[in-house]
């Protein structure tokens, strides 16, 4: 409804993107670097919304801070750009107070698993009815390429100039152990499979999680001899294996090992809201 319009910059004028109806085009061009995976990650989500014919007025997108955190600002739905790490508790309040909304958290690995890690595991444990989409680019892009909880051992970042020596999180294993009822991983090379995965996550009742592996050529690729964004996509093509149903524990992202993608968890369990409502109905009697 309230839309401020300004002419689109020359750079992006041209044929409309098919998913433009879901974008605040007046805010384009976006801030993401050339070769970044976020464009594909975002469009996969928008295609998923479109395929499912979800009413965009009934979808709320919540982001934290960081490169992925900017997604909220570009989507033409009810969107919330919160503070660092707090997208999940914000989304929790939104969902609990307005259960009829589809609430999507779209944020990055540092936001969701370092500063926001506690919120993630508890929302998963509660089976809170949220869809959490995490773009994992293995570092803090926005702030200049620092080490994060998913940075592979040995990788160089601006705060691990001699190579990362810390153990890393396997996000899909973490999500599954904490109680997520749908867990998948795709790379941005697999745009269509990613879209299908997001569709499944959006339609699955309960806490759903999709890890989206994406290149960060500017900050991560450059320092780790991966090259440009396209080089990383080529790396995905040559090193990705699809293994649906694999135990997520056996699918860590480790240097020298293939990137295992697919759907790892797909189970049904009462959600937090189901259980709250059941209990509330009992006491109201």
């Amino acid at each position: 409804m309230p839309v401020k319009t300004k002419p689109m910059p020359e750079l992006v004028r041209g044929a409309a993107h098919p998913m433009e109806k879901y974008l605040r085009t007046e805010r384009l061009p976006h801030i993401w670097c050339s070769g970044c995976g976020l464009g594909t990650a975002l469009s996969s989500f928008l295609y998923a919304v479109d395929d499912l014919k979800l009413d965009p007025d009934k979808v709320a997108v919540v982001s934290g801070i960081g490169c992925t955190g900017r997604i909220a600002g570009y989507v033409r739905m009810d969107t919330y750009h919160t503070t660092h790490g707090r997208a999940i508790p914000f989304a929790t309040g939104l969902k609990l107070a307005k259960p009829e909304l589809k609430v999507v958290v779209y944020s990055g690995d540092g936001d969701l698993f370092a500063i926001g890690g506690n919120h993630f595991i508890h929302a998963a444990r509660r089976n809170m009815d949220l869809t959490v989409l995490c773009v994992n680019n293995f570092n803090y892009g926005m702030t200049g390429g620092q080490v994060g909880p998913t940075t592979p051992v040995g990788a160089r970042t601006t705060t691990t100039p001699f190579g990362n020596f810390e153990h890393t999180f396997n996000l899909v294993h973490l999500a599954a152990s904490a109680g997520a009822t749908y867990v998948a991983r795709w790379t941005v090379l697999d745009g269509r499979r990613l879209k299908e995965g997001i569709k499944e996550a959006l339609t699955h009742k309960g806490f759903t999680f999709v890890e989206i592996v994406a290149p960060c050529p500017t900050n991560y690729g450059r320092r780790n001899r991966i090259g440009e964004g396209l080089d990383e996509l080529r790396f995905y093509r040559e090193n990705t294996v699809i293994r649906h149903g694999t135990d997520p524990k056996a699918a860590p992202l480790e240097p020298g090992k293939p990137i295992v993608v697919g759907k790892f968890v797909d189970i049904q369990k009462p959600t937090h809201l189901d259980l709250y409502e059941t209990k509330a109905a009992e006491v109201r009697k």
Binding site: Y80, T82, L94, L96, A97
Partner: peptide
């Protein structure tokens, strides 16, 4: 809602408030 910490508590309030609560 009993949150996992006070940070989560207040952020869930902010979300709920935007949802009309």
């Amino acid at each position: 809602f009993q949150a996992e910490d006070e940070i989560a508590a207040i952020f869930s309030l902010i979300g709920a408030s935007w949802a009309g609560a």
